[in-house]
Amino acid sequence: MSFLVRAVRESALWRSLFRQPYPTTSRTRALAVMNNVFLHLHPVRVKTHAVRYTYTFCLGGISFFLFLALTVTGVYLMFFYVPSINRAFQDIQTISNSVAFGDLIRNMHRWAAHLMVLTVFLHMIRVFYHGAYKPPREFNWAIGVLLLFSTLWLSFTGYLLPWDQIAFWAITVGTQMATYAPLASTESGFILLGGIEVGQETLIRFYVMHVIAFPLIAAILLVVHFWRIRKDGGISGPV
């Protein structure tokens, strides 16, 4: 057994993947963080108070994790969903009833989406009360506001996709607010809905925004957000 483990560990493949043994010393732990493209979003060392759960309440981290979970479950759903007003509703029913674990995936996607809106809001409140938006972090706060907007917009566009009564009327009511714009009342609704009323054109527009445009925008904003945390001197505080 241990012979096998050693054979694997010493194989060229393994060593090309992991350029060092499992990190157990301060030195190798630092290297592990620096040498890994994902881990190196983090600095090698963080402030002691930053790893306390009661400083960040992990809210930003949870939001990010939910974003990832939504991406994965969303890709799963895309295999079975066609954004057509004649099919969408049935596709959702099919996912719920005849796809193995389909119902679970759909529920996870929905609940994670609601939870993410909530955690992003709470994260913003936490940042505010720590005064963590103050120089040098003003720009990151602004990026954060854009992230809040992206989160809401992702959730809103996704809300239409099941094409049931809840979806249809929520989006009708939600988008009609845009048509109060002075001067551009009809136009602003028009470009949003792709027509005068919520219909096929609206569904495909919302679908494209939901599955590709805004996930990309949010991902780019997240990259900047995380980069800025480090460039602004790591997490703020302690208060």
Binding site: P23, S26, V46, P136
Partner: peptide, 15 residues
């Protein structure tokens, strides 16, 4: 880059 950093009490990211 404005950094309001002084030597802090820090711990290793890993673990």
């Amino acid at each position: 880059v404005r950094v309001d950093k002084r030597p802090d009490e820090t711990v290793l990211t890993w673990p």
